[in-house]
Design a protein around this nucleic acid. Structure first.
Lengths: 249, 249
DNA sequence: ACGTACTGTGTATGGCGTTCATAGTTTTGA
DNA sequence: TCAAAACTATGAACGCCATACACAGTACGT
């Protein structure tokens, strides 16, 4: 309570802890509406379409009115990042490994469904109510494992990070290479062929051999879900080993 | 050769495969100089300081002259991301696990030394000559392990991704929370206290218990190198297990 | 009814990336 | 030797954007 006073205004708004104004006209909007509108634009036109003007016109106010609800555009982006997160999956008595696999995959799916997230996510400790809900569920899933809280947090962080980078990779492969406008490379196959031709075996011995060997053949490269499962398996195996070690001592 | 013609111009320039102009005045610059200047600015003033005008004035040309060497600012950023990468560490006969630990840590250090990288890295398959060199070394390190090339690539990707997300997290914790301007939260400790007070135990049972229990106490939260080692250990344990499984069959 | 606190508007500003026509410079080929 | 060709750098201009500020309108509290 005493502490709530010192909360950054942004957080207060994200958590709906704003003091209700007692005078003046009722606000025509709230942060949630604005955030939702911004998300819709981003989904439809990409992040480039999300300008203050565009968001404002979508909710039917003047551009500058938004600044009553948000201190800056960055704040709005932060809200969007929290706002897109749906309810986390239900533990429903799953063993920790199954649940965390589900949980991580769900995070990846969110990122792939809203790829603009990849452009604004400076991966940072969550502060929004929805993201924190996800974190809570991961900790809960690890409840019976004998890990301490710090280890649980670390596991959750690592898995979230994995979802993030894997989604980024998958996206880069799916939508052709964004950095190479139109020309040339369009998928993992092209990537492989390109490198196979381009790399000097003297300075890139292992890599050029792999490429010439056709590692990237058949889209087994990145788009595939199997690759996600692969890395996830590595991580969960590591966690499992840790749990076993803790139990043994 | 026939293929080189169809290369995106950007890549041709990054790889120094541009056909030397036969007429007209000699170019006063090259992409490497421009990239280096941009990197220096970013290191000194952050990514916000890297405007086309600033880069141009640093190398002593008019702003628009840069567009002879780069198609867009995004291209420049891509070049920067490749250009900051130093030589990868020398394998020197290290066992795969030791080398990959070193390799991953080195990547994290790069990111922490140039934190602007975290803001421009849409994690994507590497295309620049320097990043590809890193990838090559990772594959080389895994040469004797019995993994196939696809698995090696996946391991390398996963480790790079881990370095990325861990660095992002570490940075967020070190430099206070950027999203909360000035007020309030300044480190992992504050973060923990904030959440402990804010979270409703009914909707965040596991998380609020952990926070009230003091998980974040004593900066053991994120800044610490131990956390990096923790997640890295998980991953490498997973890889080790995979290798053992391959060897057993 | 009056002041007060608050919300939304309109205008203005400065910075940015990028385009385009132009001037200047070196080589090629007649 | 000279002009056309190929190329580089320039400077002005455009459009977009985030944001600051002064103002007009609106509801509550007394």
């Amino acid at each position: 309570m005493a502490e709530e006073r010192s909360l950054p205004p942004m957080l207060r708004r994200m958590w709906g802890r704003e003091p209700v104004p007692r005078r003046g006209p009722r606000p025509r909007l709230d942060l949630a509406t604005i955030t939702a509108a911004a998300i819709e634009i981003a989904d439809a036109e990409g992040l480039a379409g999300v300008s203050m003007a565009a968001v404002a016109s979508r909710v039917g106010v003047a551009t500058t009115a938004l600044y009553r609800y948000v201190d800056s555009k960055e704040d709005l982006l932060t809200c969007m990042a929290d706002g897109v997160a749906p309810e986390p999956p239900d533990p429903a008595g799953l063993p920790w490994r199954d649940y965390l696999a589900l949980w991580t995959r769900a995070q990846r799916d969110i990122l792939l469904r809203h790829t603009w997230l990849l452009s604004i996510t400076q991966y940072a400790p969550p502060l929004g109510p929805r993201r924190l809900l996800w974190l809570d569920r991961a900790l809960a899933a690890l409840a019976g494992t004998g890990l301490d809280d710090g280890e649980k947090m670390n596991v959750a962080s690592t898995l979230t990070g994995y979802a993030l980078t894997d989604a980024a990779l998958a996206r880069a492969a799916e939508s052709g290479f964004p950095e190479l406008d139109q020309s040339g490379v369009e998928g993992a196959d092209d990537y492989g062929e390109l490198l196979a031709e381009m790399l000097d075996p003297a300075t890139y011995p292992a890599l050029s051999a792999a490429m010439r060997g056709g590692v990237m053949r058949g889209a087994a490269g990145w788009t595939d879900d199997a690759d996600f499962a692969f890395g996830l398996g590595l991580l969960l195996d590591g966690v499992e080993q840790l749990i076993a070690r803790r139990a043994a001592s």
